Simulated assay, not measured.
Amino acid sequence: MIIAHYAHRLPANHDIGLIRARARERGPLWDAVPELFFKGFLLREAGRHGAIANNYSSLYLWRHDEAFREFLVSGRYKVVTESFGRAEIQTRFALDARKGTGREARFAYREDLAIPLDADLTAIFAGEIELNRALASRPGTVAATIGVDTASWTLTRVLLSEQEPSGNEDGTSYEILHLARPLLDTLPQAGAL
């Protein structure tokens, strides 16, 4: 599985209503994409939930790398570049992904953690997989994923939740404008091994 995330910083005076309309219009086009567990249309709005700037982004969990490749070469990303320019697409190899018991993902949370140089990678990965399973079991969790970037040796935790940010969360919070979830229900359940 591949986690992919890219973001576009928006001008301070950008009409956020246009972004919300774009997500309403484009979101359903992703609701049946093969080999996609989910795609979140995400918003960080200045002055809300800790955001100091406007930001529009997309977060994906692909079943395999060929599906991500198809997204790139089929022209689906061209719609993004024509509107916002080419963004850096951050990718992570997913170590674990779980479906929680939550129903409507309203917020996404992303936390990046550097892996210390001398860390025991096997132990780190096992601990993160165990933690991801615990996070998936929390009330209101729709999905939880842990990924690794082996170029920078960074872990990325992604949580899709019904819960609005309280201000005490680790990482960055995003409002989910639309969650396409073609294969989300096929992920292992929170308590499954």
Rank of each mutant, 00 (worst) to 15 (best):
Gly147Val: 11
Pro182Val: 04
Phe84Arg: 04
Gly100Asp: 14
Ile2Glu: 08
Ala105Trp: 07
Ala143Cys: 13
Glu35Val: 00
Ile129His: 00
Val148Tyr: 06
Trp62Tyr: 12
Asn55Gln: 12
Pro188Cys: 09
Ala151Gln: 14
His14Asp: 06
Glu164Met: 09
Asp31Ala: 14
Ala123Tyr: 00
Arg9Met: 07
Ala134Glu: 12
Arg86Val: 10
Val33Arg: 05
Pro34Leu: 00
Ala114Met: 05
Gly85Val: 08
Gly85Gln: 04
Ala143Leu: 09
Leu183Met: 11
Glu70Asp: 13
Tyr6Arg: 02
Val79Ser: 10
Met1Gly: 15
Ile52His: 03
Asp149Lys: 00
Glu35Tyr: 04
Ser58Arg: 01
Gly167Ile: 07
Leu184Trp: 08
Trp153Gly: 03
Leu193Asn: 14
Glu25Asp: 10
Asn132Met: 08
Ile89Val: 15
Phe68Gly: 02
Arg63Thr: 09
Pro28Asn: 07
His14Ser: 10
Leu193Val: 15
Phe71Lys: 03
Arg86Ser: 10
Ile176Arg: 02
Ile129Cys: 09
Arg22Asp: 14
Pro165Gln: 08
Thr186Gln: 13
Asp120Arg: 01
Val142Gly: 12
Asp31Asn: 05
Phe68Val: 01
Arg63Trp: 00
Leu121Arg: 09
Phe37Glu: 06
Val158Glu: 11
Asn168Asp: 10
Ala192Tyr: 10
Gly171Tyr: 02
Ala126Arg: 01
Ser74Asp: 15
Glu104Thr: 07
Ser57Pro: 01
